[in-house]
Design a protein around this nucleic acid. Structure first.
Lengths: 193, 193
DNA sequence: GTCTATAAATCGATAGAC
DNA sequence: GTCTATCGATTTATAGAC
């Protein structure tokens, strides 16, 4: 064990800032959170943030990447834990109930996207990420269908678009009306099998 | 023709402010538009705005009501103009292509909702409006189904939630990736008949 | 690399004149 | 009722010390 190089402490600071930003953005929203608050909660000053991220937007994008990766893992784990088709669908429903809307994930994605859609660089980034995410969901759907031996009534790509869009729409509405059930997501999935 | 009473000029100013705010909010977004810009574009000063609306949030809610009413009328007109089932579905598809996402409507609704979801008064307002809108869509669906003699495969209420959620999700994504087609909305509708 | 200090700009909202 | 002027608070981002 040698002492950390400059590069390593830099990466460590960046990681801690990302962790904190993720937590605060999810709790309070993107617009309502100042860069200063993120820095303070992480035990740094604003300068440290701007030493690791060029702009607040860049920090926001990095946070979104982080959350998306984590949730994708949690979904994959939840789904693949179940054996047969019916329990996989049920597992998906349970995951959706916990992850769509009220935890702030959807809301953060959407607030960021709508608030920064005029910023030239960010906009193209968001578009690229959307396509990657859709493709990933389509792959997951296809793989699951093959594994379980079911044939889809539409292309995996179309189903992925529908699932993602419906999830976004439900999540947005649940952000200010948590009583709205996510049942329709499971309905959509069942109807497609 | 007598000269306008104080009440009438007040209402006139309010109307002009609403018109202008609608246009600017749709074009530039809610957060990016200052109260001062709305006032200036309408030919007034900020004071006139705050004489007609208590806060910027209240102005935002009034704008949303206005737009929603107008779009609801345009949808009803588009749908009822067609005679048989197939052409009504097609009319709906054409309306969706023009109204979901790229015109800024969905984006404005969603940006406002996600940015103000922590504001106590606004939040309950949004929830009430969501329920009213869902009920209105459910009514429209039910009425159309009865008129055309088709039976739905699920409750009109559930279908309304799905249509609205899918529309919101597609609209949000189209805001930064306009190439995403709205086809799935029509697919969903067809599948429910 | 990080911190302190501050720039530079903007915003929502209010007070008082007219 | 509307306008002018301004408050007061906050923001992102930067410059220079350490």
């Amino acid at each position: 064990m040698t002492r950390l190089t400059r590069k390593e402490t830099h990466a460590q600071t960046r990681e801690r800032l990302l962790e904190t930003a993720t937590r605060v953005f999810l709790a309070d929203g993107y617009n309502a959170t100042s860069v200063e608050k993120v820095a303070a909660e992480a035990g740094f000053s604003k300068g440290a943030v701007y030493s690791n991220f060029a702009t607040k937007h860049e920090l926001g994008l990095a946070v979104l990447d982080r959350v998306r990766l984590e949730r994708a893992g949690s979904l994959a784990a939840a789904v693949s834990g179940a054996a047969d088709l019916e329990s996989r669908v049920a597992a998906f429903g349970a995951w959706a109930e916990e992850n769509i809307g009220d935890v702030g994930w959807t809301t953060l994605e959407v607030e960021f996207a709508t608030s920064t859609r005029r910023v030239p660089g960010v906009r193209t980034d968001l578009a690229a990420r959307r396509r990657a995410l859709t493709a990933a969901v389509a792959d997951l759907v296809e793989q699951q269908a093959a594994e379980l031996g079911v044939t889809l009534r539409q292309s995996a790509e179309d189903l992925a678009v529908q699932l993602l869009s419906l999830g976004i729409g439900l999540g947005v509405q649940r952000a200010f009306d948590p009583e709205l059930p996510v049942r329709s997501l499971v309905d959509l999935l069942r109807g497609a099998l």
